[in-house]
Amino acid sequence: MPRLIRWRDGAAAWGEDALTAVDDDQPVPHGDVLVSLALFQRERRSLLGQGRNLGVIMGPTDEPESLVVDLPGLSVVALTFPKFRDGRAYSAARVLRERLGFKGELRAVGDVLLDMSVPLIRCGFDAFVPADASVPEQWTASASRFRHVYQRAADGRPPAFAERNDLSAVRV
């Protein structure tokens, strides 16, 4: 089974990818599958409600809002980085997590590099398929390098202004 890196409780570790990727022109097998948004929309009825784990992989122009009613039935949403410099998936991830309340696995695929660890995790990703042969120890180190952040995102970290508020409350 292909491996990926999972982020849980502040640390990265190898994990197994339990989903079988299915091409758009293939018949959908039984069991746990990862399909494109187009295939999902076409075969929505037969894919959902069969008690299987289902993942949808979205391209950079796919709108996460189009999944809104089906999200509770999905265990994985994978967002694609065609190049590491293409940051659209960060917005899609935050919309999925913070606005649409997606609780399943949010997976980064494509040109996914170690140096993206901080923005990925902050925007709500918790699984990565790295394209640069990086390993979980490196992800843990690189993602925890910064002791503070300046803004709220999808990871729940308190921003500097909240830390300051707490500090001054304690000091008073």
């Binding site: 940051g87 935050r94 925007c123 803004q151 500097a160």
Partner: peptide, 13 residues
């Protein structure tokens, strides 16, 4: 300045 520093969503515009 603070809000935009290392903004995770807007580092790759």
């Amino acid at each position: 300045r603070q809000w935009s520093t290392f903004h995770p969503e807007f580092s790759y515009l």
